[in-house]
């Protein structure tokens, strides 16, 4: 995945993953970053920060990824991660109806609170559990089949999700972190969808983060950690 030859313009994109617990956010990231999959992945605690480059014909995108925890008690921390994000992956599990409802909530929250130009992709994960997974090459394109085929665990039709995505102006993919199906495609599509104008140079410290001043010299008195964190009774 490293840059190959001639220096292409390189920019960094902050991306956040949101979605109900256990839909496969971490698995998608693990597939994208390490091309790996773990059968029994433990829930994320808090959030994980990872980076991965994505080579486009004309430029290189360096994703700075926040993989957030889906569990309810971490929900109050989410704004910290999506606040400055240029892209979001909202993930649901296409074998679990409630996860799409949750995904819609996230989309609404992002549209309300995140930066206006944010690129949002709706991702239905665990496609390998559906019967149409076997030979699909371009699932994302044609939403047709579903129904209760043999051994099909699909609970959310491609049609339904796709229609919703179109209404809201979201990118839409069905993926399998397990097989790797469509995973890089999602990230590439996001990279392509980021307007050139909103890209900053990846070099230099200016990839400003989360609105926190990063100056090392700033004096912060740690005297009262008890006070300062008692007041933010969040994360639950």
């Amino acid at each position: 995945m490293a840059d190959t030859n001639a220096p292409k313009p390189s920019s960094s994109v902050k991306l956040v993953l949101l979605g109900e617990a256990a839909v496969g956010k971490s698995s998608l990231v693990l597939r994208f970053v390490n091309n790996d999959f773990q059968e029994n992945k433990e829930p994320t605690i808090g959030a994980a920060f990872l980076t991965q480059k994505c080579n486009l014909p004309t430029r290189t995108i360096k994703f700075e990824i926040w993989d957030t925890a889906g569990q309810e008690r971490f929900a109050s921390l989410a704004p910290m991660y999506y606040r400055n994000a240029q892209a979001a992956l909202v993930v649901y599990d296409l074998t679990k109806p409630t996860s799409l409802i949750k995904a819609k909530h996230w989309v609404a929250e992002l549209q309300r609170q995140a930066s206006p130009g944010i690129v949002i992709a709706l991702v239905g994960n665990k496609l390998d559990l559906t019967s149409d997974s076997a030979g699909t090459a371009e699932v994302s394109g044609d939403g047709d089949d579903n129904a209760e085929d043999s051994g099909d665990a699909r609970k959310i039709s491609t049609e339904e999700a796709k229609t919703y995505a179109e209404e809201e102006g979201l990118l839409f993919f069905e993926t399998s972190a397990k097989t790797g199906h469509n995973v890089t495609e999602v990230f590439t599509a996001i990279a392509n969808a980021i307007p050139e104008t909103s890209l900053k140079s990846a070099r230099g410290p200016g990839a400003s983060h989360a609105g926190v001043s990063r100056t090392e010299e700033q004096r912060v008195n740690l005297n009262g950690p008890r006070d300062s964190h008692a007041k933010e009774g969040c994360a639950c």
Binding site: S26, V29, L30, V33, N34, Q38, K41, E42, T44, I45, G46, A47, A48, F49, L50, T51, I65, D67, F74, L77, P225, R226, H229, A230, K231, E232, G233, C234, A235
Partner: peptide
Amino acid sequence: AGGGENWVPLCLPAFNNRGY
């Protein structure tokens, strides 16, 4: 197993059981 860097809210009860 997750890889990457982690940012974990947690309470250390012996230090202070009232906050994160």
